[in-house]
């Protein structure tokens, strides 16, 4: 029963990993950018939520009303101010600029918030659970996290394939030059994509802060989880990121069941196995 429990809890945590991954997948899909600072931005959102909760006494989830638009605005500005200038044929500038950004964010958070680990308290949300089977309890928070992940991915999927913004994303990704002939300013389209990505990052950051302790140096680890979920699921497939996140969560859960020291290792090894045997991921994007 412990094993089954580990799997169930792993699936639920997978939702959080899918949230880490969805934003990465989105901006890679639109502008082929891999943001090394993605994880640090998640942690930035956690700290923002923490600061807001401590200043206003809002419930952590209510802080989303402020954190989401704040992060989205930051994403828009970041893309227009810095990242747009790095895009081109050469992969080095975006990579190295976001790497620098990652270091700045980590040390900025360290400077302002110290290295002490923090956590958001969501009250009964965290403590409530209900039994699914004898011996297996589902926590309300993990369930909410998973449902939110599904909702976010469904929402992104809808936006991508059913709205004019999504059409602009796809057209710009297909052929930047011709998209400009349709009156689309690709720099603005990219900025909207980054804004959307950081809105998702904001939600992920708040859930992360409720679920566990966080400190300024947790970003790279979250980047890696998100990245692994993207690759396991298959590049460019939003629902694939959910599957990837779940597989990663279950692998970690089972690893931890064997020995707590194997938790992260089991996730990484699963990723490497997928890379070895299914290098395009489980659900590669079918090109038209």
């Amino acid at each position: 029963m412990d094993w089954l429990n580990a799997i169930v809890q792993g699936i639920l945590v997978g939702g959080l990993y899918a949230m880490f991954a969805a934003g990465l997948s989105l901006i890679f899909g639109v502008m082929r950018l891999v943001n090394i600072a993605h994880g640090d931005l998640i942690i930035l959102a956690s700290y923002l939520a923490w600061a807001i909760v401590h200043a206003t006494g809002l419930h952590p989830l209510a802080s989303l009303i402020i954190v989401v638009p704040l992060m989205a605005g930051f994403g828009y500005a970041l893309q227009r101010g810095i990242l747009n200038r790095t895009l081109g044929k050469d992969i080095l500038p975006p990579l190295l600029v976001t790497f620098g950004l990652s270091v700045i964010l980590q040390n900025g958070l360290l400077e302002y918030f110290t290295a002490d680990s923090r956590k958001l308290d969501a009250g009964f949300l965290e403590t409530s659970s209900f039994p699914l089977l004898p011996g297996i309890n589902i926590g309300v928070l993990p369930l909410l996290m998973f449902v939110s992940a599904v909702a976010i991915i469904a929402g992104l999927q809808f936006l991508f394939y059913r709205t004019s913004l999504g059409r602009a994303f796809r057209a710009t990704s297909d052929d930047t030059e011709i998209a400009q002939l349709m009156g689309l300013d690709n720099k603005k389209v990219y900025a909207w994509a980054m804004a959307l990505c950081l809105a998702v990052v904001a939600i992920a950051g708040v859930f992360l802060a409720i679920r566990s302790n966080f400190d300024p140096f947790m970003g790279p680890g979250r980047l890696i989880f998100g990245f692994e979920a993207v690759i396991i699921g298959g590049l460019g497939n939003l629902w694939g990121t959910l599957v990837g996140g779940v597989i990663l969560g279950v692998a970690q859960g089972l690893g931890a069941q064997v020995d707590p020291g194997y938790q992260l290792l089991a996730g990484h090894v699963t990723f490497l196995l997928v890379l070895a045997f299914r290098p395009t991921g489980l659900y590669p994007r079918v090109s038209g």
Partner: peptide, 24 residues
């Protein structure tokens, strides 16, 4: 002017090789 502004003023191009958006 950037391309995205010129089209708004009434000049459109049918590009060589058609270049439709494959994912649309």
């Amino acid at each position: 002017f950037p391309a995205s502004e010129i089209v708004k003023r009434g000049i459109a191009l049918v590009p060589e090789g058609r270049r439709l958006f494959p994912s649309l």
